[in-house]
Structure formats: C-alpha cells, structure tokens
Design a protein around this nucleic acid. Structure first.
Lengths: 335, 335
DNA sequence: TGCTAAGTGTTTTAGTGTTATCATAATCTT
DNA sequence: AAGATTATGATAACACTAAAACACTTAGCA
C-alpha cells in the first residue's frame, strides 16, 4: 500500500507537503503540487481510509441491522439504504439479526467501538415480542445515533421511519366493504410484531364502523414457524362463504390466492384478495395480486437521510418520526 | 468514547500499563490488573476498532459485492456469507452493483484503500457480458484477495466458488427424458451469463445423447428487462404439445407453472416442469415446483472460508476453484 | 541604507488510539 | 553489593492532518 511517506521520500519533501499538495493547499507552490500529484497518480496512491477515520473520529460508515434478508421487504429496504448511503458517501456494514435478540445486541455492541458512525435497523422479532430494547438504548446513551424503521418500539426515543399500518389496513378493508363483501377475513403471520397488531386494528376498526356488515371479524393468526398452507386450507373448508381476504404479511396473500384458484373460486367475482407488500416476484401470479404498497424504497431512503442529517447536525434536535404513505394498488384480485 | 488514556489518567498509571493489564500481561501485578479491569468494565471501555486496524494493517472486514439483492439467490448467498463471516470474526461491507460494471468498479476502488482485507463478489451482468474484468485484476495486483462466486470469468486468476452448471442441467434433462418426455423446452432469462450458457449446453448435450428423441432442442431466451410472461404464453400457444420444461433461472419456472395451470395442463401428467433455485417463497406454488437446488448456503459459506484461508496464509497458494454439488429435488411438478 | 513587517513555501510537532519493544526503577536473592 | 526479578513507564510506529514553527524573500518606510 502506497502512503504519503513513500511519496515524500521519493520526492525529497516532507510528508505534510505531500498531504497539503494533494489537497491543493494555497501554501504549496504550483510546481510542487504538480510533481506530487503526478507521482501520486503514477503510483495509484489512495488515502488510507482507516488512518483518516482515526484522525477524524468518524468512519463514514453506517451499521445496518436487518432482521431477515430472505424477506423481500427487507431485501428491498437494504437495496434502498445501500443506494442512498452510497450516494451520500457512506459505506454500509450489514448485519443480519435473523430475528434473534442476541445477534442484534451483539452486532450493536461489536460495531459501537468506532466501526460505524450510526445505525439503521429494524427490530428483530424476538426483541419486539419481549419489548427488549435496553441494548438499543445503550447505544443511544453512547451518543451513537440510531434510526429504526418499520419495526419500532415506542419506548425508544430516536428517529424512526414507519408507515401508517393502521390506516393502510383500514383503507384496504374499506375497499372490500365498498365492493359489497360480506365475509372478510384477515390473515396474519406477523401477529407478534408491532406492525401486525396495528394492521389488525385497522381492519377491526373498519369493520366496526361498517353499518350493514353482519359477520364478526375473523382473524387467522399463523405462528412464525408454522406452515402457512394448512390454516388457509382450513379457512376455505370451514368458511367456504369467505368473499374477502386481507393478508397483512407478504406471503400469506399469495398462498391464499393459489389455494383459492385450486378450489375453483372465481377471482375476483367470488372472492377478493389484497396482499401487503411492494411488487415483487409474486407479481407473476395469475391473476395478479392487488396489494398495499409500502413504498419500501422511500422507507430505506428516508432512513439514510434521517441518519445523515443527525450525524451532520451538532445540536440535539428531538427525535423525528417520519411516516411514509402507503398506497392501495388494485390489480386483478379485486373488483 | 472511552480510551486507554482516560483509564490511565483516572488510575494514575501509564497507558501502556492499562493496555498490558487488559491483555492479562504477566508483567503487570494481579492487583493492578484487577483495578484496571474493574474500571474498564465500569466505564464500558471498548478497544477502538479503527486504531487497532491502523496498528495491525488489517480490518477484519470483508467487502461483499452483490449484483442484485432482490434476486433470491443472492439474498440467500449474502445470508450465508454474513453468517460465516460473523462466525469467523469478520464484518462485511455490502455493496450492490445492481448489475452495473461502473458501480462494481467503483465499489472495488473505494474499498481498496484499506477499508477491507479482501473481497467476495459475483460479477455484474454488464461485466460478464463484456468480459470486462480489468478492474478486478487491478485489485488482485494490489495483493488484495478476491473470491468470486457463481458468476465468474475464466480470465481472472483467483479463488472461485461455482456449481456444476452444465452437469445440473444435463441431469435435469436426463430426468425428463427418463419420464418419456418427447418435447422438452428450455427457458432462460440469463442467457447473457456464463452460468446460463453452461446450463443450456448441459441441456443440449443431454438431448443430443438421447437415442429416441425426435424433436429439436427448443431454447426460449428472454432478455433481461423483457416481460417474462409473453414469451411463455407464446410457447404454449405455438407448441401446445410441450411436455417438459426446464427453467434455468429462478423465476421463469414458476411463471411457466402458473400459465400451464391456467391453460388446464395436468401437472405432472401432461407436463413436467423443473426450475432452478433453492427453495424460496415460490415453494408456495400448488403443485410444488421441482427444482435443481444450488445449495446456496454452501456457496456463501465456502466463499468466506476460501477468503479467510487466503488472508491467513502467508505464502502464495495457487487459485482454488471449489465446485458445490447441486441436487435435483423432485417435488410435485415432475413424475 | 537598514530595519521591520509581511508573505511564501516548507518542515516540525503534536495528536488520533493502540500495542510492541525497550528502558527504568524498585525490590528481592545470594 | 552485584545480579536477578518485578512492576511500571517511555517511545515508536501505524497513516494522516492541523497547527505551529521556521527560513527565506520581498516590500514598506524612516
């Protein structure tokens, strides 16, 4: 690795002269600047990032903690985070908590030793179920900024990026009601998560406000590691009259669609289905699934922007909560 | 941030003493060691990673360059890489080339300034089409180790992790032939990639070896950004007698399955379909897609192991090419 | 003309946090 | 009292940069 020292020795000048020359300092003669730059280019000199980080006490690196990269929502969020971070001159160190609180805690601890300037994260399922957030508060106490997106906790005072989960499910339910649906079921395999509960509440509220809706709310909860298919098959067996399904996670909707097709439901004539997710590989279903789009790219981008703003501002601004608009996208599984 | 200096001042000892005490040096008295450790723990001292990296000229960080994180194969590879790296005490800096050669080159350049000890990457589509690999060779010339997985180039001499693409497609084709299929079509939307070409060759070879197979090979190539659905609909329209489909990417197989169901093909009686990919969300199709599993977790894990070995060994071992076994997994879309 | 003041281009020094090496002082053996 | 042992401290090095110091030249002015 070429260093300032190498350049200085070859040019018979001091290290600082080289440093200043490379920074186009006014103090250095044009001639020297030129000679230094020529040699630097010739030897493909690159300033050592580690040394600069040490000097400046900042790394221009963001720690990103993702609960589950195999979940398309998080893959897309990571995509957006990387893109915006890169644009702003930051690298990202990626950690995958795999929904484990211990791994999440470990990653925060390991990177809070000067490795990163701040964190962007979404909470692991385990942390969220137990509302176990002390490890995150620890980081904040060390004055390392944290931005949490999607899966947040009210007990942490930091910047957050969320969507209006309640409103999104409320709107989707309203839509099915407006289609004249009489038996609307909600399917969730994320009931343990904050966002899951909020979305369920939105569904409940919309139904309770509906004047001429006679059926009781029907929420089918699928536990995290259970098979998705069996409960959905049971649903169609026990309640063949179901005519509206809202899936509030990003897989059960597509499973419901597959099963309904297999059982010869006419979609959307007999049955409407609304999923929850950005467009993704599931778009290849036929008919195409109507979904609530979370605008995942905006979520990722906003998270980076909040963090970068926080890193740049010296004075303590109080926590900002940014809500990203969702959009009900009607494709072919709704009337 | 708490430093050795802080501890030293508070304890009225020198910085070296503190450092030694924290490392359980024999030179330091048990009493002092205890006092130092107590205070360190109390103040939550963590050795500054950046300073240690500077001192040791190594970062324990791996740069990972992924062509497309929205592709399930790469998401899973990243998952495996992160897991193994974490186990071996390395962090990963993730860069997404988004199939662009420029972004790939940029990431390599930006991180080759001491930010990472080595790279794990899979080549961007652009780089691979043009066999544009000088930027990767540059890194190798700087003595920074690189491991390339899946999408490789023969003109680069470095460690690689690949699968037997030819053999995998050959075996799958053989299987369909053994089912007595008479019109086997191959669908590919990765014809520009090295792996795509190899897989296609495997299919061709298997067919050419088949004694009583009368149809010509039929390869449907879908260009990267084109819609997948139209060519597949055309296939069924123009060749309704198709009775075997091999998809060598990880999406077209599931689209073919959807379309076939819609057209009332009985699967697998009338038509067998084999996809190419690990299990993923697509497992929710009904019937379940038979696939060639790439053992993506092994690919990621092996990549990390090769890199770590390379980083640890002083002497130049010549490049290692590791081939991961694939497995034909027969589910419900094959007889 | 001679002195100071200002300007120019460079080097020296110090500091970022850590650790390895060498030095030193105090205590203990013999 | 010389030598060994024990505990601690000082220094240098990693690569870099900001600030201070240093020569040297030139300009301004009595």
């Amino acid at each position: 690795m070429i260093t300032l020292k190498h350049l200085a020795e070859q040019l018979n000048v001091s290290i600082s002269t080289v440093s200043k020359a490379l920074h186009d300092s006014e103090e250095i003669s044009p001639d020297t600047i030129e000679r230094v730059k020529a040699l630097a280019k010739h030897l493909n000199y690159k300033p050592n990032k580690v040394a600069i980080s040490l000097k400046n006490s900042k790394t221009n690196t963001i720690g990103v903690i993702i609960p589950n990269i195999l979940n398309h929502f998080f893959a897309k969020a990571l995509y957006a985070i990387e893109k915006e971070a890169s644009k702003q001159g930051y690298n990202i160190i990626t950690c995958l908590s795999n929904e484990k609180k211990d791994k999440e805690m470990n990653s925060l601890q390991l990177l809070s030793n000067g490795s990163v300037d701040g964190f962007i994260m979404s909470m692991a399922e385990e942390s969220q179920i137990a509302n176990n957030v002390d490890h995150i508060k620890d980081i904040l106490h060390q004055n390392i900024p944290v931005v949490i997106f999607d899966r947040v906790s009210e007990s942490i005072a930091c910047d957050k990026v969320i969507i209006d989960d309640f409103g999104a499910a409320y709107e989707a339910t309203k839509h099915l009601l407006s289609e004249g649906r009489k038996h609307i079921v909600l399917i969730s395999n994320i009931d343990d998560l904050s966002v899951g509960k909020l979305r369920t509440n939105g569904y409940m509220e919309a139904l309770s406000e509906a004047a001429n809706y006679d059926n009781k709310p029907n929420v089918i909860i699928i536990k995290t590691n259970d098979a998705i298919e069996a409960p959905i098959e049971d649903l169609f067996k026990n309640h063949p009259t179901v005519d509206g399904i809202i899936s509030i996670d990003n897989t059960s909707g597509v499973v419901a669609l597959q099963k309904a097709i297999k059982l010869n439901y006419k979609i959307p004539q007999d049955l409407s289905i609304i999923g929850f997710s950005d467009e993704n590989v599931l778009q290849f279903t036929d008919p195409k699934l109507s979904t609530i789009s979370q605008h995942t790219l905006d979520i990722g981008k906003s998270s980076v922007q909040l963090l970068v703003d926080r890193l740049k501002s010296k004075d303590q601004v109080k926590p900002i909560i940014k809500t990203i608009k969702t959009k009900l996208i009607l494709r072919e599984t709704t009337k």
